[in-house]
Design a protein around this nucleic acid. Structure first.
Lengths: 189, 189
DNA sequence: GTCTATAACACGATAGAC
DNA sequence: GTCTATCGTGTTATAGAC
């Protein structure tokens, strides 16, 4: 999908508002007011409110799937793959913190594309889990319940959108390497 | 605050719905329908919709503050304190996963008590950060940016409400000890 | 304590002028 | 491409009967 520039403007404006108040609490009038136009004018560029949310969420979800596929098909070690996943999340989130809020919190308001989103999410988690399991069997990663490790790491990565805007002094590669250290080796000395 | 049993019933019913769709997307009619009564009847027990959200969030926030105070004032080592914080989150979240969803996602819709909530949250994060810094100075914890460690651990703990209902086979103490291991010592072998 | 009825307003979306 | 005007519906909350 290649939206026109005006449509993109609507989407980015909406993303900012969705992050602040959540999809349901943001009205078409809110979005229009932020752009200095009337709500009715929005419908010359988009079909309805849902289309805005769908675009934000699905395009991000696809970016994650594509990134993980590339990592999975590389020859790197399991630990190296995990570091690349951390970098992937830092990269995508840095470029679109507002959209990441909707991906995390507003997906349940999807209609037409809800099933596809859920499929992509399960697919992503399964691939991630496989990399962890592969690391366990290759003796690179501790033999703890893989679900607990997946949950712990993924929870942190999914929360990056809250934290990155508050820490603009750290650049992406510094953040990714520090975060990899903490997630892989813990905080205990 | 000691709500009547009927009021508590409204609050727990609302919590379930708030977790599924978020505060803004849940109507008074939805809550009433779940209880088998009409929306107007709710107002015999509560002042308005906001009061429900306020009760859910503030009582949980106070529970966390009280728990962290107890941990902070103990004589345990820094690492031991961190393990106790993990157990605190597992405990509170296990007893009220629905309410934790609102605490995490719907706090911005508070009105009268928004400032107090924000104060409690900053207070909690500051106390948590102090325990980490104390651990660094006592050479118990790695000398990495404390904010990154705080963010990483707290993000995982705050996401427990999503995960605990899916893993009912693990009891609280097992989960807390496994999670402490992963958060403190990482997943790398 | 619950009901019906309704006030007062906000919502998403459309029609048609410019 | 934006506007004004408006439709049809959904929303919180209240009034008053039972």
């Amino acid at each position: 999908m290649k939206p026109s520039s005006r449509k993109l403007e609507i989407i980015t404006t909406a993303s900012t508002l969705f992050k602040e108040k959540g999809y349901s609490a943001v009205t078409m009038r809110d979005i229009a007011k932020s752009m200095g136009i009337k709500a009715a004018s929005l419908y010359n560029h988009i079909k309805n409110k849902e289309e805005i949310l769908t675009f934000i969420i699905i395009s991000l979800a696809e970016e994650f799937i594509e990134g993980l596929d590339n990592i999975q098909n590389s020859n790197a070690s399991s630990v190296e793959k995990l570091k690349q996943i951390v970098a992937l999340h830092v990269d995508i989130t840095s470029r679109n913190t507002n959209g990441m809020a909707s991906l995390n919190n507003d997906w349940m308001h999807l209609k037409d594309e809800l099933d596809r989103y859920l499929f992509l999410r399960v697919d992503y988690e399964n691939s991630f889990r496989e990399i962890i399991k592969e690391g366990i069997s290759k003796n690179e990663i501790k033999n703890i319940n893989p679900d607990i490790m997946l949950f712990s790491v993924l929870s942190t990565l999914r929360s990056l959108y809250v934290w990155i805007p508050q820490k603009e002094d750290l650049n992406a590669s510094q953040l990714a390497s520090n975060l990899s250290e903490v997630l892989l080796n813990g905080i205990n000395k």
